[in-house]
């Protein structure tokens, strides 16, 4: 038996093993895939279809192919107001998170030793895993008229009502506190990745710190800034606990009214439409922010 014989004979065996390996893969993935498709994608598709149905107070849902639910949303000023309020609060919260998050993330990346950083990151991460209900109820303690902030201001002689609970301001404060960890953690990994030497080089050429941030660090951190902002925007748009607890029952934002329509009013067609309007609005904002940021990036490098 020659070498040539042996090589030819072993080739099919190797090929067979490779196909066996490759054919094993679908089996490994199918349980998870089937689960997600059956329990998420299919129900979502069903909801989309239901958003085109007709709502009847007696029969609840009647099969149809109508756009009335979406029209109802866009023609009723009440719902328009809810959407714009949600958008406005989300954008404002995200911007504040950005302004507050950049210094913290930079601080963690440049000015902290490994141990200190681990402690601080843990401190920032733990609230993320506490849950929005608990975190928001903690803010209720601070913001209400008999709470911590009122007592603190009372030390300086301020005895008036705070008027923060049940207002947009209060909701924004609560949201910012909930979203900041997401922003800081996203930004931190970006700042870590930027070469320290670049900042030293800029310094050696005469740049002061603010100039270094503006001309070197932030332009290079733009992808991370974008990712953090998009993440915060999405979380803010879909927030439930903070608007409900701090905003109160008369303070309407998109996520709470989706819940009300689907589970309380049992108006599934309209509720479904609201859900998809919310997702669409979030998507449009995400694309818009990405486009604006990428445009600015081009300007910066000129």
């Amino acid at each position: 038996m020659t070498v040539a014989d042996m090589t030819i004979n072993s080739a099919p065996r190797v090929a067979a093993r490779k196909t066996r390996q490759r054919s094993r893969l679908p089996w490994l993935m199918s349980p998870a895939l089937i689960f997600v498709i059956a329990c998420l994608l299919f129900p979502l598709a069903m909801m989309l279809r239901y958003s085109l149905n007709h709502y009847d107070p007696a029969e609840l849902m009647v099969s149809a192919l109508t756009a009335e639910n979406y029209l109802k949303f866009f023609s009723d000023s009440f719902y328009q107001e809810v959407l714009w309020r949600t958008v406005g609060i989300s954008v404002l919260s995200t911007v504040i998170c950005l302004v507050a998050g950049v210094p913290v993330a930079y601080f963690l990346a440049r000015y902290t030793s490994a141990l200190y950083k681990r402690v601080l990151l843990l401190l920032i991460l733990v609230p993320l895993l506490i849950g929005n209900v608990v975190r928001t109820s903690a803010w209720m303690l601070i913001l209400n008229d008999t709470g911590v902030l009122a007592a603190f201001l009372g030390l300086f002689g301020y005895t008036g009502r705070l008027n923060l609970m049940y207002t947009s301001t209060g909701v924004v404060i609560g949201l910012v506190s909930v979203l900041l960890p997401f922003m800081v953690i996203t930004l931190n990994s970006v700042f870590e990745a930027i070469d320290h030497n670049l900042e030293d080089a800029a310094s050696s050429l005469g740049a002061g710190h603010l100039t270094i941030m503006r001309q070197v660090v932030l332009p290079l951190a733009l992808p991370g800034i974008l990712a953090g902002s998009v993440l915060c925007l999405i979380l803010a748009m879909n927030a439930y606990a903070t608007p409900v607890l701090i905003g109160g029952p008369t303070f309407n934002m998109m996520a709470p009214i989706v819940y009300q329509q689907i589970a309380k009013a049992m108006n599934w067609p309209f509720g479904a439409a609201l859900a998809f309007v919310l997702m669409a609005a979030t998507l449009v904002m995400t694309i818009g922010v990405s486009a604006v940021v990428q445009n600015k990036y081009r300007k910066w490098s000129e």
Binding site: D195, N197, L198, D200, A201, A202, S203, S204, L205, G206, A207, G208, Q215, V216, P219, L220, W300, S301
Partner: peptide
């Protein structure tokens, strides 16, 4: 460092990746 008027060349060059060669030199 930014007030010493010294030219510093780094081991890994530290060129600003988001600027062209000309912009780097002009900095």
């Amino acid at each position: 460092p930014n007030r010493r008027n010294m030219g510093f060349v780094f081991q890994n060059y530290a060129l600003f990746p988001h600027m062209t060669v000309a912009q780097n030199v002009a900095f």
